[in-house]
Design a protein around this nucleic acid. Structure first.
Length: 108
DNA sequence: ACGTTGACTGGTC
DNA sequence: TGACCAGCCAACG
């Protein structure tokens, strides 16, 4: 487990309920802008027993691209809707509204 | 050690 | 508007 993953998990855990962020935002917060793919890998490698809200992490379009990695996949959208986030066609409607940028919110 | 893939992003065509 | 390329890092065969 690289420190990178640890940092990613830490940031994801800091995402407040009802908010979402993007892979690029996390990567940017960690200082590795081009490493957005690593964030996706981290989500894929996230332990099931962990309380990491991976459902709050979406791509830059606000689409639930990683929903297929959930169990069941529809659970991701369900969780987001449960937090007050509007989902349409597996994409966040008010993505810009509920977007949570760690590099800004954490005032880094 | 090397090549491929992956829940990405930004830019160009 | 949709498709493709390059960049980035880590894991896997």
């Amino acid at each position: 487990m690289s420190d990178f993953f640890n940092d990613i998990y830490d940031v994801v855990l800091l995402i407040p309920s009802g908010k979402v962020t993007s892979y690029g935002a996390i990567a940017n917060y960690l200082g590795t802008k081009g490493s957005a793919r690593i964030v996706g890998w981290a989500m894929n490698q996230v332990p099931k027993n962990s309380n990491i809200p991976a459902h709050r992490v979406v791509n830059r379009n606000g689409c639930l691209t990683g929903r297929h990695h959930f169990n069941p996949p529809e659970k991701m959208q369900q969780l987001l809707e449960n937090e007050g986030i509007k989902i349409s066609n597996h994409c966040i409607e008010n993505f810009k509204t509920c977007f949570w940028d760690p590099s800004i919110e954490l005032n880094l």
